[in-house]
Design a protein around this nucleic acid. Structure first.
Length: 516
DNA sequence: CCCCTATTGTG
DNA sequence: ACAATAGGG
């Protein structure tokens, strides 16, 4: 693997009026009620099927303005990372294509939603606006302001849940507010009435002509989402097909091939046993409700899927739980959920160690394989994520936020709730987190979950000729074995950046400062 | 969704 | 000598 020289990070180089022809009569008979196109504001719901906001808009007797606003300027918004921007570009292209096929049109904007949406509504004399809810603090605040402004301007607005099985506030722990432990949360969520059958995509979308005087639309390229300086995205293109079609294909493949063995095979990073739906979910190209319904239907038809299905739905449950916690702790992307961790004596990150971690050059094959998979494909297997994250936080004693930022920049599935919550889980500072003394050993994890070294060999070709016995600990191999495998430690593959026992002891000592 | 060490059990 | 298990970080 080669990183382009000087590349520290993917984003590091920086961040109608409608036609009144045959409709005129109808408008006249409606009297004073405001008529005009309906705005469908797409955000993290880039799909046509099971999109309640879109379905509600189509049901109204008005043509549609389908809108996406690329907004990096609103206060408190976290800018997309590089991989997310790449994904977003292609997802918008796919969405625009699908909307066109139905007869509609997707209009793109760049700037503050707070300015663009009301200006568009006014210029188009929009009668209504529909969107799918989101759950970040700044996003909720903005949506609330916009709703007030639009309503005051006579635009009916309606928002829907399309991103979660249950709204964060619907899953209740007696009268005592939100959950902080996963198992009771998920039990309570599963006990709620089923989210119901997913909606079909609309048959037809009637496009509203674009008004003069409305905010200027951008082309997809003008959003500037694709990398400019160097094309690190080749590996992303080779591995992913962003968009609703790609998401449905993944789901179908997974139900047919992955689900049965999922409960155990999900832990082996060399196996192709995982759904890889996370980036599609992140951008709402598929809804959790669609996934839930499809899995339930599959296990009803094929009872042998039951074990895999419950494990897989449990992962969807972790996503719901993360949003539930995130909703009641809007600062959790940057603040320890357990405040005692504020006293944690993180090291001032040594740059060479941090670089080694980012580039997959720590000398620990499982960690390095994961980090290289991440850089190349914009994805990392969950088992490798846990090992790589634990290694940074514990063995290198580097603040989880620094790792979180790297993942945010490089993961296609970088999710505002999941990414920080999962890092906090590893660090031990999170809700229902792994206890601080749980330290993943990359050698043992490798031997247990990648016993043949297939995953390591796939991502670290310079180690490929090592026998299984040494594939997860090349530094311990006899000189003759290394010679035979043409491995020169410190040259073709790095020596360990830190000794495992030393790193572990140092971490456990540091965590003493944080113990209750 | 862990690892390490000490101790006891087994041949 | 090794496997299985307990206890603790």
């Amino acid at each position: 693997m080669t990183l382009p020289a000087g590349t520290m990070a993917r984003t590091g180089n920086s961040a109608h009026k409608w036609g009144l022809t045959s409709d005129r009569k109808q408008k006249m008979t409606r009297g004073a009620q405001k008529q005009g196109p309906s705005i469908v504001w797409f955000r993290d719901d880039l799909r046509l099927a099971d999109n309640q906001a879109l379905t509600a808009a189509v049901a109204a007797p008005a043509p549609l303005l389908c809108v996406y606003i690329f907004d990096e300027e609103s206060e408190g918004f976290r800018p997309h990372g590089g991989a997310s921007r790449w994904w977003l570009h292609h997802s918008l292209a796919a969405l625009g294509g699908e909307i066109s096929k139905k007869g509609g049109r997707l209009d793109l904007f760049r700037g503050r939603a707070k300015d663009i949406l009301p200006a568009l509504a006014a210029a188009a004399s929009a009668g209504a606006a529909f969107w799918t809810r989101r759950y970040g603090g700044a996003e909720i605040a903005l949506d609330t302001v916009l709703k007030t402004r639009l309503v005051a301007a006579g635009v009916k607005t309606q928002s829907f849940n399309g991103q979660l099985l249950h709204e964060p506030w619907e899953v209740k722990r007696g009268a005592r507010g939100s959950f902080m432990v996963y198992s009771p949360y998920w039990r309570a969520a599963l006990a709620l009435p089923d989210a119901g059958a997913p909606l079909d995509a609309p048959e037809k979308i009637l496009a509203s002509p674009y008004s003069r005087g409305a905010p200027k639309r951008k082309s997809l390229d003008e959003l500037g989402l694709l990398p400019k300086r160097c094309d690190w995205a080749a590996g992303l293109s080779a591995n992913w097909r962003p968009g609703e079609k790609g998401a449905q294909k993944r789901l179908g493949d997974f139900l047919a091939n992955g689900l049965q063995a999922y409960a155990s095979a999900r832990d082996r990073p060399a196996d192709d046993a995982i759904s890889r739906l996370s980036p599609h979910l992140r951008f709402g190209e598929i809804s959790p409700r669609q996934i839930f319904a499809a899995v339930r239907a599959a296990e009803t038809e094929r009872p042998e899927l039951k074990a895999g299905a419950s494990k897989f739905l449990g992962e969807l449950g972790w996503r719901e739980f993360n949003y539930h916690v995130f909703f009641s702790h809007p600062n959790a992307a940057t603040t320890n959920l357990q405040r005692r961790f504020d006293a944690m004596p993180w090291r001032d990150p040594p740059l060479h160690e941090l670089k080694a971690w980012r580039r997959g050059q720590t000398g620990y094959p499982l960690v390095d394989a994961g980090m290289r998979e991440l850089w190349t494909t914009g994805f990392m297997h969950n088992r490798a994520r846990m090992a790589a994250a634990s290694f940074l936080v514990k063995h290198l004693l580097i603040d989880w936020r620094i790792g979180e930022e790297w993942f945010w920049d490089t993961l296609c599935d970088a999710d505002p709730a999941n990414n920080p919550m999962n890092w906090q889980w590893v660090a031990g500072s999170g809700a229902d987190a792994a206890p601080y003394f749980r330290v993943f050993n990359p050698v043992l994890q490798g031997e247990k979950f990648d016993p043949r070294g297939d995953y390591v060999r796939r991502w670290i070709p310079e180690l490929a000729a090592l026998p299984d016995k040494w594939i997860h600990k090349p530094w311990a191999a006899p000189a003759a074995v290394l010679l035979e495998a043409r491995v020169e430690l410190g040259k073709t593959y790095p020596k360990p950046v830190v000794d495992l026992a030393d790193g572990r002891d140092r971490a456990l000592k540091a965590f003493e400062a944080v113990r209750r």
